[in-house]
Design a protein around this nucleic acid. Sequence first.
DNA 1: TATGAATGAGTGTTCATTCAT
DNA 2: TATGAATGAACACTCATTCAT
Lengths: 224, 224, 224, 224
Amino acid sequence: MRHASPRSRSTKDRSSTVRPATRFDRRLSEILSHATDVFDEKGYEGASMRDLSRVSGTSLAGLYYYFESKEKLLYLIQRHTFTTIVERLRNRLEGVTDPEQRVRVFILNHLEYFLANQKAMKVLSHEDEILKNGYGAEIAAIKREYVRTCVDLLDELKRANNLEFSSRTAALSLFGMMNWIYTWYKPRVDGNAETLAEEMSDIFLRGVCADMGKSSKKRISITN
Amino acid sequence: MRHASPRSRSTKDRSSTVRPATRFDRRLSEILSHATDVFDEKGYEGASMRDLSRVSGTSLAGLYYYFESKEKLLYLIQRHTFTTIVERLRNRLEGVTDPEQRVRVFILNHLEYFLANQKAMKVLSHEDEILKNGYGAEIAAIKREYVRTCVDLLDELKRANNLEFSSRTAALSLFGMMNWIYTWYKPRVDGNAETLAEEMSDIFLRGVCADMGKSSKKRISITN
Amino acid sequence: MRHASPRSRSTKDRSSTVRPATRFDRRLSEILSHATDVFDEKGYEGASMRDLSRVSGTSLAGLYYYFESKEKLLYLIQRHTFTTIVERLRNRLEGVTDPEQRVRVFILNHLEYFLANQKAMKVLSHEDEILKNGYGAEIAAIKREYVRTCVDLLDELKRANNLEFSSRTAALSLFGMMNWIYTWYKPRVDGNAETLAEEMSDIFLRGVCADMGKSSKKRISITN
Amino acid sequence: MRHASPRSRSTKDRSSTVRPATRFDRRLSEILSHATDVFDEKGYEGASMRDLSRVSGTSLAGLYYYFESKEKLLYLIQRHTFTTIVERLRNRLEGVTDPEQRVRVFILNHLEYFLANQKAMKVLSHEDEILKNGYGAEIAAIKREYVRTCVDLLDELKRANNLEFSSRTAALSLFGMMNWIYTWYKPRVDGNAETLAEEMSDIFLRGVCADMGKSSKKRISITN
DNA sequence: TATGAATGAGTGTTCATTCAT
DNA sequence: TATGAATGAACACTCATTCAT
């Protein structure tokens, strides 16, 4: 953002309170959705406000009625995407008690949302370090909480089954497995979210050669 | 931009033949290294040639003596990084015959290089869709070969142990686990490459709850 | 140069339809006029957008609100100049039937416009090979038609008076005589358009020593 | 020229004295010739020193061994072209006494050299206002003398035949006819220099409808 | 004689943003 | 609500030229 200046009425004021959706909200959502597409295709830096204006059918100046800066726009997209996935997860975990199942629910929820909203999720994970200060902190907080949830789920699993591994490494590896799919996923080849979730859950929970027994494990040392 | 005109001596001509490193080569390498840092910090689009000029201590115009465009610069970085990691892998796999060990070698090689050259690797994986036409195709080809190598390793493993899983999904999941670390890795917390490689190898090969046996696996269905 | 992207509303769209002149049009005309001066003084290549911005009292970026490129600007100038002179010619030829008079009308029209719009005409004739592809083709087409008109006039004259000469060479010689004046014309010394038109018409139609009779003509051969 | 600085040994010093052609001179001529081609194709402003370096097979820096600036290069080309054509004219006029023949010799000499050295002549007439101060003045002086010669020839003709016309307008019209040919000349269509010279001489000396007699001349007045 | 390496100043163009209406 | 018009700052890149070797 080049010329930052205070605004009398900020986007945040409007959108953070709960109230019936106004015309403003609906237009905002539309624009957000178009912007998500553009960020997905060109990246945040590569996308210009003119691009956004074109695809959303609004004049360049008109966009600024809806958000005060490009950065804020990214923030709104990321916040909406994140809060939605977190909310869905909360609902789905309700009533599921088996620790392994809870992890599987987490994975399915993540992948399902990821594949249904690939563009938004790509923007979410790809444009990670753009947001500064306030906005960045807020998104980072939501993200930290989401990761925390996953770590907690793994801790439960460990406790329940008397396992030993680094929940942190495991959780972050799991996120890697899942978040990376935007680089390779092809619906025809890789199946739908449920299939993929099962495959990834299996790999994550049992490994690719689980049947061989842990005894075969040998340390390797490489000198080169 | 004025008309881009061919150069009498292009960067590619110089760098693709094998010969003793000249002063030109050394300066080129320096600049490449600095540029890698900047791309890492700001992203390709976000990094300006002025930034590169500043950190590499060369005048803006001087940079263009070494590569004819920003895009070519990215290409050179990516090519160098990729060919190096592929070459190392080849060397390390030599003499290792056990299929599981070969996968472990792959993981260790990747992570070791990744952590030692985090910035370059981040640039490699993050700025994936920038390069167009010729350059993009060349990098994509190297990448495809590298992925292919991993898939082949998993196929060997499957054959040897009579396993059944999608090598493609597994390989790409594995890459996700590994490539994602640039978003979270902290040396103090997460240990060195060998530790991490072991943890990830274990998760990937045995899963987090390998001991429980596959029998406990239940399908989940979620309606929401 | 960043990616050139299509504009939602291009200069061409605006200027090719017939409608009352808007504020946009008026400002456009002003800038076109200033640009003509600058192109005249420095040539197309020698004139910088910064020069244009300075003389037209607009910010550098502001210019691009009116035309999408320097090339398009040249195109607009050339098109306007050419269509105006062609239109005037059409009007003036109406009602004139005597073939010789028609040629004289052509000459007078050309010179009058040339002297009244010297700068524009110099730009028109001097910056002939700049425009590429579409724009160039369009201007070339108008020009071809204009030259064609002149050749036709000479053909009429030939038919009417039973003369024999190459209409093409004659027409292009005539254009040479007229178009070259931008290199030497001085109002005080050379008189106004009418005077000049008469002199040139006389030279072109009767030659400088018409009274001597054609018999004196001798072939020359030079060896050197 | 951006960074003008004095030179210990200037090109002019070398080339303006009469002495046997050295290796320096020969290379200089080659480069001049190549440069003429490039200036012809791209114009003076449009041609870059890099272009010249490329076509003349000399390094960019190497060019500066032969002339101290791009401007000087243009000067050398223009001076050489001009002095050659003037010299030839002098030789050819020797011994020709008939005033009309002398004019015809002038025209033939100009056209012959023009067609044989089209590129150089185009550069000569097209890049007329580039040279500043000293160089410009020198070229302008040669040019003025050349034009003066033509005007004198016409004055002789007038005196000899008791004619009345503006020698200045006539001479400059004649130059227009001749110099303009670079915009339209096609060898196949328009014949060789001799043919063209005869046609133009006839038009210039007798006009296109000389046979009709001067009586038919009517004044035209246009109101529009 | 000739060039590899370098540079300050400039190029055309696009950026996110503003503001009067 | 929405936009036409405008802008300062930045962009990637090229320019003519220099100088140590």
